[in-house]
Structures are given as C-alpha cells and as structure tokens.
Amino acid sequence: MKGSLDARLKMELKKLIVDECDITANPEEIGDEDLLFGSESRLGLDSIDALQISIAIQNKYNIIITDSKETRRVMKSINTFADFLQPE
C-alpha cells in the first residue's frame, strides 16, 4: 500500500515529528497535506528539525536520506513523506 494511503504509518510519522521536534501541537492536528517546513507552514519547522527527523527515520526505518535538497522534497508534507518511506 502506498504510504499516503496508510493511515497507521501517517499517524506514526506525525507522532515522530511532534516528539522529535519538541512541538506543542497534537499529532492529530497535523493535516496530511499541511506544509511542514518554512514560514508558510503552521508548524514552521526548519533545517535542523529536518536533520533531527532524518536521524530518527534512519534509526527507526533504517532509511538514509542523503542530502538536504532531497530532505526538503521528501518532507514537504505527511503524504509525500509517507510515500517516500513506503512507495507501494
């Protein structure tokens, strides 16, 4: 199943982001299409948050995200992130 269709995986990612980035929002409040990074995003995550999430992903799913441009593309939203981790 594609990651963006896997509700369990998406909730897991939301919880991971909330925990790792030490944000006060509830995981349920993060929309699947919400922008995660940048000034237009409600969460307003930045490049260090992205690195923090990358290491957590590496430890949990054994998947290495190599460069920062790829990180931004992959972590645009919960849906893109889930599809990256679980392409099908």
Partner: peptide, 12 residues
C-alpha cells in the same frame, strides 16, 4: 549504546 549518529538537537 544505540550505535547511531547523535540527534542534532542533542548534539548542538
């Protein structure tokens, strides 16, 4: 112990 790269916030 975890044999991981450290998480950035902790390292900083």
């Amino acid at each position: 112990e975890v044999n991981s790269l450290p998480k950035p916030f902790g390292f900083i």
